[in-house]
Design a protein around this nucleic acid. Structure first.
Ligand SMILES: [Mn+2]
Ligand SMILES: [Mn+2]
Ligand SMILES: [Mn+2]
Ligand SMILES: [Mn+2]
Lengths: 227, 227
DNA sequence: TAATTAACTTTGCTTGCTCAAAATCAATTG
DNA sequence: CAATTGATTTTGAGCAAGCAAAGTTAATTA
């Protein structure tokens, strides 16, 4: 059995892997992601590589093997199912559940996880809109664009929030920018680096302005694509 | 913060403490309870004693300080509330939840525990009939007798099962000897060391025979006392 | 090409927890 | 009272994970 430390490393290697599949994840990025000094990451990765869960190339970086990826996806599945349970059944606020799941993901048994999955009726997405891998380790990916590159004016639907920090999520909640919300991008100002949004909240139209950096944290689905 | 190892030791010290309050818990008993060699228990207890959570007297044994007892009771509260949640909300079988709670008890946050307590409506007993300490660390004790010393013939109500092992609990379930069940002790045979019980199950009367050793694992409440 | 710099690895050390085996203590037995 | 025995403690060692600081490497700059 993989220790909780190894589970955390594998999950971070998966989440932080570069978009380009041919690239390796550097040790600097990994050590920052798991919150450990670079030396520690190097020696842990060596150990995990001895267990054939990652490939490690000194000075190049690290990459999951198929076995390692399966394990990472199982941890991710646990994490996200737990988050959804905490919100939907236990009634925690969605800004709190990430921290909580970070611990619980290492201790729920397969049996308990199966029950959670059943109770939630085999959900596909967690409270932040992140896809929940299947028990077989398959990720169903949505095709989305961010609030930075989606077309102006057309109605869209918020699919996913990429920042899990509690403060940010509370702000998001306040503005009504939750997953599922219907919004439109009114305008973008490249000088001010801001995006103006039209949010429909309880029938009323609200205008919300966010920076380019924040706009990139929202993934939206176009309505015409949905058909 | 106490590590999960220390939490486990404190809980076991509490659960295994001798009935006579003036007695100390011996290292032999403790090491067996936490599943560790005697030498390991000795050195851990030394460490825990440096943290003023227990008193330790070489060759005499170990005893919780008030601070240690509070901590032990908090762990126990988490354990038992989690067990009840797993049975009542997640629908796990009561024979499975002890193992599960053994891990979960170390990672649920105070906030989550408060939600669980609310959802279950501040329960006083877990699925095995064990009392759930209050958030303030108070144990409400029931006064009970075992199936070995309760009077013959009078109607009683099963209050608590003292053996948490999965196999045994499944057997208990089968016989209908769950907490809450109405039963009577028909007879005791001191030669055969057996107790015969009358169990009322779906209107019908069943007879179940168990040994003295097993009888001691059931705590029952007398009906006349209930008033 | 040589020097600088940033990223990475190595080394040495610490902490928490564990075991096996040897040593010690205290209670009982002869 | 001496010897035996069972429980307990001590000792020596190992493993997993971590940090700090020193040493390497490779890319960039001059
Ligand atoms: Mn985690
Ligand atoms: Mn999430
Ligand atoms: Mn435990
Ligand atoms: Mn219980």
């Amino acid at each position: 059995m993989a220790s909780r430390t190894i589970e955390n490393y594998l999950k971070q290697i998966y989440l932080s892997r570069p978009a380009d599949e041919t690239q390796w994840l550097t040790m600097g990025k990994l050590s920052a992601a798991v919150g450990v000094t670079p030396g520690t990451a190097t020696s842990m990765v060596r150990a995990i590589s001895d267990a054939h869960l990652v490939e490690y190339e000194p000075r190049a970086g690290v990459r999951l093997t198929p076995a390692g990826e399966q394990l990472a996806l199982h941890v991710l599945r646990r994490h996200r199912l737990i988050e959804l349970l905490l919100v939907q059944v236990l009634g925690l606020d969605w800004s709190e559940v990430h921290e909580e799941a970070e611990e619980l993901e290492h201790v729920v048994s397969d049996r308990l996880l199966a029950r959670i999955d059943e109770i939630l009726q085999h959900p596909a997405f967690d409270p932040h809109g992140d896809p929940i891998p299947t028990a077989g380790g398959v990720v169903r990916s949505q095709d989305c664009c961010t609030l930075l590159d989606c077309p102006l004016g057309s109605p869209t639907n918020i699919a996913r929030i990429l920042d899990q920090s509690a403060d940010f999520l509370q702000y998001v909640n306040q503005c009504g920018l939750l997953p599922g919300a219907d919004i439109r991008v009114a305008s973008r100002n490249h000088q001010a680096q801001t995006v103006e949004l039209l949010v429909i909240k309880r029938g009323e139209n609200h205008v919300v302005a966010i920076s380019f950096a924040v706009a990139e944290k929202f993934l939206v689905q176009m309505y015409d694509r949905k058909k």
